[in-house]
């Protein structure tokens, strides 16, 4: 099978995902995404200055956040998470990600 690079997306801090990509890939609703941004659990890296009507549609996020967003989306679906739990879970997942990265870094330099 051929692998087309156009289908390849890097999920890291060097690449962006748009709000609509994030919604499509994570299964979150636009309201839930807005709530995550409103509570500070998720920070857009920039706003597209284009003439868009809806605020949430103009956001761009670090590609890195998609993994955690998908996880909270699944947890929300399967455990019926309330909005507050959704943003708290995201914050804690991000903290775990950073700690795991530091651990990895320390281990490799030891």
């Amino acid at each position: 099978m051929k692998n087309n690079d156009a289908e390849l997306l890097w999920l890291d801090e060097h690449h962006e995902v748009t709000a609509s990509e994030l919604l499509e890939l994570s299964g979150l609703s636009a309201e839930e995404l807005e709530w995550l941004v409103e509570t500070g659990a998720l920070n857009p890296i920039r706003c597209v200055p284009a003439a868009v009507t809806q605020q949430s549609q103009a956001w761009c996020f670090s590609g890195q956040c998609l993994v955690a967003i998908r996880t909270v989306s699944r947890l929300k679906r399967d455990f019926d998470l309330a909005p507050d739990a959704l943003s708290l879970t995201l914050v804690l997942l991000e903290r775990i990600r950073v700690l795991e990265q530091q651990l990895l870094q320390n281990n490799s330099q030891a």
């Binding site: 051929k2 692998n3 289908e7 890097w10 890291d12 998609l66 990895l104």
Partner: peptide, 21 residues
């Protein structure tokens, strides 16, 4: 079974998404 090209520049812990695969 699936063949994929892992591009130059990936790091340890890198996440990649292959759309539609």
């Amino acid at each position: 079974t699936f063949k994929a090209r892992i591009p130059k520049g990936v790091s340890h812990g890198q996440k990649l998404l292959l759309r539609g695969k």
